[in-house]
Amino acid sequence: MKKNYSGERLTVAIQLKRQPPKWIYNTLLTIVVFILVIYSFSGTVISADRLNNFWPSLRVMIKGFLNPNLKFLFGLDDASIPYLTLQTLAIAFAGTLIAAIFALPIGFLSARNVTGKASKIGEIILIAIRTFPEIILALILIRIFGIGALTGTLTIGIHSVGMLGKLFAESIENMDRGPIEALDAVGANIWQKIRYGIFPQVLPDFLSITLYRFDINVRSATILGVVSAGGLGTPLIFATREWDWPTLSSILIAIIIMVVSVDIISSKLREKLV
C-alpha cells in the first residue's frame, strides 16, 4: 500500500493539490517579458511625415531595387563591384588564415588537458579578444595601418583569434586520450606529444572550424568597409547615406551571390573533411 509522509493513503485529490505551480511562474514571466519588450520601444518618435509617405517611399525603393546600377555592377575598374567583391573575399580569406595561425598556439595554451592550470591565461586572452567589438578594433587599426583593405584584413585576423582559439581548445579537450598515453609510455616530451598525438587527431576539426569562421568573416568583411577598411562596405555606406537604391541593389546582388556561393563551397569542403 502506498503511503505519503503524513501516513494517509496517497490519492488523486492529494496529488492534484500538489501540482507544482509552474503556470504561475510561466504566466508571470510572460507578462514581465511582454512589458519589457513594450517598454523597450519607448522613446521612439516616428514622424507623421514619414508615415504619410509610406506608400510613395515604398514605391521609390522597390523601383530602385528593380533597377540595379549595372555600370557599377559590371565595371572592371577598382572602384566597381567585381573588384570590390574580390577584395572582400581576399580580406576574409587572408584574415581568417592569419587568425588560424595565431589561434593555434593560443588554442593549445588554453586547452585544459595540455597545459593544466596555465590554460586560464589563454582563456582570459581569448575572452578579451572575443569581446572587443570588431568595428572598434577596425577604427583603432585605421589609425595605425591607414584607410584600406589591409586594416580590414588585420581586424579580421586579430578578432577571429578569439573564437577560433576557443573552438580549437574545445576540440583538443574533447579528443581521445589514448594516443597521448601511448606517447607518454614511449617517453615523448610535450612537443612530440602535440606533433604525433594531438595534431593528427584534431586537424580535420581545426580545418572545419576555420572554414566555418571564413563563412562568418565573409559577412563581417562587408561590414568593415563601413569604416573604410576596404571591400564592398564602403560603397554600401555611401549608398545608404544617399538612399541610392539602384547602387544598393547592385551591392546587395553581389553580397547575396558571394555569401551563398561561399556557403555552398565551404559546406561541400566541410563534408569532405568529416
Binding site: V45, R50, T222, W243, I255
Partner: peptide
C-alpha cells in the same frame, strides 16, 4: 541571413527614421 544588418537598418529607417524602433 545573407542580408547585411546594415542594409536592413537602412531599409527600415527609410520608412521610420533612425531610432530605437
Amino acid at each position: 541571413r545573407t542580408l547585411p544588418t546594415l542594409v536592413v537598418v537602412v531599409v527600415v529607417a527609410f520608412f521610420f527614421g533612425f531610432n530605437v524602433f
